[in-house]
């Protein structure tokens, strides 16, 4: 089958389909309402909850920590204070990244050339990984906030060994995950366990396709020509 046959086949077949198509008279009101509901439905309740919980956590705990620093710095455990500061700071970074991600998704311009826009969409989706990585960096601080001076003065060797092992292993785990949570590892069991690997498979396929097309992305000079 040659090129002309293929084109003839496609055009003849689609002509028949086009004839059978009715005009869609959906009003703009219905369309725009649907747009809003679609956007909201894409923001699953769990996402809204996560965002609100993260914001409340950062604002609430942040406020308490600042108050404690100003009014009771000498009375609180510095291990607790600094562990909590690091934890809240990392949560704040994750919340900011999350808000940027959601607002970017909402303002995406579908009018861009296909390969360019699809790369942007893939990058956006991939940024979910960065948020997860930031949150994972909090792990070690959950093992240090309850430390205090009396623990070091009165603690026993087994306690120190146990505490040290927990903190070191959490630090190692968080750093290991921070450096290894990437698409290349999406087929690994721990990745699937942490991030529901199935959701990433089509994305990884798309990344591979787009990477292959990277060699063909034209320079702007090539493109700025009218096709009219």
């Amino acid at each position: 089958m040659n090129d002309t046959d293929l084109k003839y086949l496609w055009q003849t077949g689609n002509e028949q389909i086009a004839i059978s198509q009715k005009s869609d008279k959906t009003s703009l009101d219905k369309l725009t309402k649907r747009n809003v509901s679609h956007f909201l439905s894409s923001m699953k309740p769990i996402k809204i909850f996560t965002l609100l919980a993260g914001l409340l956590w950062v604002l609430g705990i942040g406020y308490v920590l600042i108050k404690l620093t100003i009014n009771a710095y000498d009375q609180v455990s510095l291990y607790f204070l600094y562990s909590a500061y690091f934890q809240v700071m990392l949560t704040a970074v994750a919340v900011i990244l999350y808000i940027i991600q959601l607002s970017t998704i909402y303002s995406i311009d579908f009018n861009k050339p296909v390969v360019i826009l699809q790369k942007t969409l893939i990058k956006l989706k991939a940024s979910t990984l960065n948020i997860t990585k930031i949150l994972i960096l909090q792990l070690p601080f959950w093992t240090t906030f309850y430390w205090n001076e009396s623990m070091f003065k009165n603690g026993t060797l087994p306690l120190f060994i146990l505490q040290g092992a927990v903190t070191i292993s959490f630090t190692y785990l968080s750093l290991w995950l921070f450096f290894h949570l990437k698409f290349e590892n999406a087929d690994k069991w721990w990745f699937k366990l942490l991030l529901q690997g199935k959701e990433w498979e089509p994305l990884i396929t798309s990344i591979n396709i787009l990477n292959e097309m990277e060699e063909g992305v034209s320079s702007d000079k090539d493109k700025i020509k009218k096709s009219k």
């Binding site: 293929l6 055009q11 050339p113 296909v114 063909g216 992305v217 034209s218 493109k223 020509k225 096709s227």
Partner: peptide
Amino acid sequence: LEDKSYLEISEIMGISVSYVGTK
């Protein structure tokens, strides 16, 4: 198949004309 020229396809897709030909 819609009979678009390679130039039009390159503008729609954001890839070079020569790459459209190769693909």
